[in-house]
Simulated scan of single mutants.
Amino acid sequence: MRSETSRVLITTARAQHHEFANCLHTVAGLLHMEMYDRATEFIAELTRARTTKTRRADHVREPVLSALLVGKSAVAAERGVALHIGASTSLPRRALVPHDLMMVLGNLIDNALDAVAAHPVPDPRVDVDVWAEGDTVVLRVADNGPGVPPGARPHVFTEGWSTKQPHPGRGVGLAQVRRIADQYDGAAALDERAGGGAVFTVRLPRALAPEAVAGR
């Protein structure tokens, strides 16, 4: 468990580092070409985008999930995908087992990024929404990729199943999502996204600490 958590955090940290380095190189290039106004505009654009994402991630009061969202935004940017955190995203600070929520959300986002990256579409995007219903945490991730054929949908949470080329490491993430949902007596569902793509929704009952629910 700890090694998997470390792997996720290291991956997101590396992506943030690369994104930061690319931004610095772009600013340095604009300054070198004496395009000072464009450099100023570029910095302002970055600041606005980062502020919006950070503000919405801050609405997730569980620090592990908030940090994951910021990190996955950098991963998405590295892959040329826009990751949007829903304006209604909101969650009390404490989760009983933050690692479980991190693994579910991280796997759903990775799966969505793979879907849009493997089948390029105009303006690829992934939409993330996280909210609480009482002590139940609901995590929803949608993408505008090719979607999943109806006949294949019953198998997406099966270990080893994948739309990608066969590989020993394939078909693990969504199976893990289902296992965690089962542990909470919750549910993991796949639906078609309006306009094309897929929507994954996971409900985890009793995932929030009692005092967090009482303090909402």
Rank of each mutant, 00 (worst) to 15 (best):
Asp143Ile: 00
Asn144Phe: 01
Gly145Pro: 00
Gly145Cys: 00
Pro146Cys: 04
Gly147Leu: 12
Gly147Asp: 06
Val148Gln: 14
Val148Pro: 07
Pro149Trp: 15
Pro149His: 14
Pro150Leu: 08
Gly151Thr: 14
Ala152Leu: 13
Ala152Glu: 07
Arg153Gly: 06
Arg153Trp: 03
Arg153Ala: 10
Pro154Met: 01
Pro154Glu: 01
His155Ser: 14
His155Ile: 07
Val156Glu: 05
Val156Thr: 11
Val156Tyr: 01
Val156Asp: 04
Phe157Tyr: 02
Phe157Val: 04
Phe157Ile: 00
Phe157Ser: 03
Phe157Gly: 06
Phe157Asn: 10
Gly160Leu: 03
Gly160Ala: 06
Trp161Cys: 14
Trp161Gly: 04
Trp161Glu: 15
Trp161Asn: 13
Ser162Trp: 06
Ser162Ala: 12
Ser162Met: 10
Ser162Lys: 03
Lys164Ser: 13
Lys164Ile: 15
Lys164Leu: 15
Gln165Asp: 00
Gln165Met: 07
Gln165Thr: 11
Gln165Leu: 14
Pro166Ala: 00
His167Gln: 12
Pro168Asp: 15
Pro168Ser: 03
Gly169Phe: 12
Arg170Cys: 07
Arg170His: 13
Arg170Trp: 15
Gly171Ser: 05
Gly173Asp: 08
Gly173Thr: 06
Ala175Gln: 08
Ala175Pro: 10
Ala175Arg: 07
Gln176Ser: 12
Val177Arg: 11
Val177Tyr: 03
Arg179Phe: 13
Ile180Arg: 07
Gln183Thr: 08
Gln183Met: 11
Gln183Ser: 09
Tyr184Gly: 02
Tyr184Trp: 09
Asp185His: 05
Asp185Thr: 05
Gly186Lys: 05
Gly186Tyr: 05
Gly186Leu: 02
Gly186Met: 09
Gly186Arg: 03
Ala187Leu: 02
Ala188Cys: 10
Ala188Asn: 08
Ala189Thr: 13
Leu190Phe: 00
Leu190Ala: 07
Asp191Ala: 02
Asp191Val: 05
Asp191Gln: 01
Glu192Leu: 02
Glu192Arg: 03
Glu192Ser: 06
Glu192Lys: 00
Arg193Trp: 06
Arg193Ile: 01
Ala194Asn: 05
Ala194Asp: 09
